[in-house]
């Protein structure tokens, strides 16, 4: 087996972002299992795809922006479970279109997208707001007042 010096691994640099780490992992797998990666792109890649997101923080909230163009409000699902925010979209075009023009161009197509973000603690989960405009979904997650560290008194007997 050939030994190659591993260059510029961001895996060991804590300051690099999640996407760099992801790309690095993808690259690692592409090198190690090239057949698997083509298979994955061909099969899995066609089924569920991802979309770009931005994460912001403001004084009293976190904001997630996602580029999800072409969906309707009802086709997008935003849910929080177990500290993970999942944004997913499902669309089936071609069959139920009512307008004549769209029916003429009918090609039944399914589109599935999904993306998950691990949330920080101390959020007001019941006050999450989501808006969808011009193909961009904005989710606002208000922060709750930080829970004060609990003092536990130890009684010595």
């Amino acid at each position: 087996m050939k030994i190659v010096r591993y260059q510029n691994s961001p895996l060991f640099n804590p300051s690099t972002s999640y996407s760099t780490l992801r790309n690095e992992m993808d690259r690692l797998f592409d090198v190690a299992f090239p057949a698997l990666s083509t298979l994955q792109r061909g099969l899995l890649g066609g089924l569920v795809s991802e979309f770009p997101i931005d994460l912001f923080q403001e004084k009293d909230a976190f904001v997630v922006r996602a580029e999800l163009s072409g969906f309707t409000k009802d086709e997008i699902n935003v849910e929080v479970a177990d500290g993970i925010l999942t944004i997913s979209g499902y669309q089936k075009t071609g069959e139920t279109k009512s307008s004549k023009k769209e029916a003429a161009n009918a090609v039944t197509e399914e589109r599935r997208v999904s993306r998950s973000v691990t949330l920080p603690e101390h959020l007001k989960l019941d006050q999450i707001q989501a808006t969808y405009e011009n193909g961009v979904l904005t989710v606002k997650l208000p922060k709750s007042e930080e829970v004060k560290p609990k003092q536990i008194a130890i009684t010595v007997k």
């Binding site: 770009p52 931005d54 994460l55 912001f56 923080q57 403001e58 004084k59 922006r65 961009v136």
Partner: peptide, 16 residues
Amino acid sequence: NFTVPAEWTPVHREIQ
């Protein structure tokens, strides 16, 4: 049309 409001601190960005 979107510009990031001044009070938003970017945490992670993918959207160009």
